[in-house]
Computed example of a mutant assay.
Amino acid sequence: MKVLYQTRYNIFTRKGGDTVQILKTKEFIEGKFPNIQIDINSDPKADLSSYDLVHIFNMLRPQETILFLENAKAQNKMAALSTIFWRSTEFERQGQMGLRKMVNRLISYDGMERLRGLYRYYIDGEKHEGTSRLIRKGYTRLQREILEQADLLLPNGEGEMELIQSIFEPRMSLNYLVVPNAIDAGIFKCDADSQRDIVLCVGRFEPRKNQLNLIKAFNGLPYKLVLAGRAHETQQKYLKAMQMAIQNKNVEIVDEVDHGELQKLYSRARVHVLPSWYDTPGLVSLEAAVSGCNIVVTTRGTTREYFGDDAYYCEPGNIESIQKAIIDAYNAPYNQRLETRINSDFTWDQAAERTVDGYRLLLSREEQEVGAG
């Protein structure tokens, strides 16, 4: 089997959770199934003649996803879609900064996304047919077209699928298979002998991840906070706001680190905090939880589906809520039950198997359709 992965053009220059998801899925599928070869290509006009199927990632950038799907359909290829979906209305109106926040409070969700599309088309260099179509048709309509054309959806959780169905149903019948977000059990594990004396937050520095409110919460706490990440060039104002919000020496900002160094950081942390405006559920929260940290996570997204009663939850827009969750997590013993459950249910090995189940389902369906024809 030969599979082509297609996703946003800046997947490696603006790294995020989807970057890890793509690379780890490829790594573990190819390691576990030697007969499967996977390539990664962001060309919307790629020649698909040598591929058995296409696996596309990310409904949040429909201007690219629709082009990948249409190319697959034009070349008679089955297409799986890792949805990576949420609605960010609350974040755009409460968690954003400056003029963007003010404008977003005055217009509809589709209006917000159309404005972003205009910015991308005329200023950010995304001057192509997909962005033009987003501006003309609207964000939700373009996403609906994607759902209508995808042969199989691969959401990260039932909660993600429920959100999709609540927005686009009952007009659509959607085939899906849940593929969990996951950890690399060979890298991330608990060191019971390590000295843990910090609170850690790992992630890209941007308003959605909400590090600014986390810093504000820490100005009234006695613990040491380390924030590890990097700000994209478009988020330098946010990074500066983070730096300006630091009022004492108990908050430190360090650069993004690779997985080997990240494990060392987790081993120093008593608590890991990710107070995002939404997450599904946050790969770093999974990694931290199996590395010996109690975790504080947002109430938004699929976090409860993954962590149940074994995490400490906070409201992203409420400083006191973030503070209380951190204090509770810091003063509690390490939750080994969560570590056990993640190692049992949420590993890349399992994600690889579920993804390949989806591929086989698609190819068997294709054979049935050819036979019927």
Rank of each mutant, 00 (worst) to 15 (best):
Ala185Met: 03
Ile167Val: 15
Ala269Pro: 14
Glu315Val: 08
Thr140Asn: 08
Arg14Leu: 14
Ile198Leu: 07
Leu152Val: 05
Asp310Ile: 00
Ala325Phe: 02
Trp277Cys: 08
Cys293Trp: 00
Ala372Gln: 14
Met244Phe: 14
Pro180Asp: 09
Tyr238Gly: 03
Gly138Ser: 07
Gly16Trp: 00
Tyr330Ala: 02
Thr280Arg: 05
Ala332Asn: 14
Gly220Met: 09
Leu53Lys: 02
Ala79Thr: 00
Glu256His: 13
His272Asn: 13
Arg114Glu: 11
Pro222Phe: 11
Leu106Ile: 11
Asp309Leu: 06
Ile322Phe: 05
Pro155Leu: 10
Glu367Ser: 14
Leu262Pro: 03
Asn181Arg: 07
Leu53Phe: 05
Phe168Cys: 08
Tyr223Cys: 03
Gln195Asn: 14
Asp357Val: 07
Ile342Ser: 03
Gln63Lys: 06
Leu48Gln: 03
Glu261Gly: 13
Asp258Gly: 12
Lys15Met: 14
Ile56Gln: 04
Gln143Cys: 10
Glu113Trp: 07
Thr89Val: 11
Tyr312Trp: 13
Val290Glu: 00
Asp151Pro: 01
Thr303Gly: 09
Leu225Cys: 08
Asp151Phe: 03
Glu70Val: 04
Met1Asn: 07
Gly117His: 03
Asp184Ser: 10
Ala311Met: 05
Phe218His: 06
Asp258Leu: 08
Ile56His: 02
Trp348Glu: 05
Val179Tyr: 00
Val284Tyr: 01
Tyr119Phe: 12
Arg360Pro: 01
Pro34Gln: 13
Thr355Asn: 05
Leu214Asp: 07
Glu339Ser: 12
Leu154Cys: 06
Pro170Gln: 09
Ile36Thr: 07
Gly371Pro: 08
Asn175Cys: 11
Tyr139Phe: 11
Gly138Asp: 06
Tyr266Ile: 07
Met244Gly: 12
Phe68Tyr: 13
Glu64Ala: 10
Gln350Thr: 12
Ile146Gln: 03
Met102Trp: 14
Phe12Cys: 10
Ala245Lys: 13
Asn331Cys: 08
Glu305Phe: 01
Glu206Cys: 13
Leu200Pro: 09
Arg61Ser: 13
Arg87Glu: 14
Lys45His: 10
Thr65Tyr: 04
Ala332Tyr: 03
Pro44Lys: 07
Ile29Cys: 03
Ile123Asn: 13
Thr280Asn: 15
Ile22Asp: 01
Arg204Val: 08
Lys237His: 12
Asn76Leu: 11
Asn104Glu: 11
Ala74Val: 06
Gly301Asn: 05
Lys15Val: 09
Leu48Thr: 00
Tyr9Glu: 15
Pro180Trp: 00
Ala150Pro: 03
Gln143Asn: 11
Asn248Tyr: 12
Ser291Pro: 08
Gln235Asn: 15
Leu265Met: 12
Arg208Trp: 01
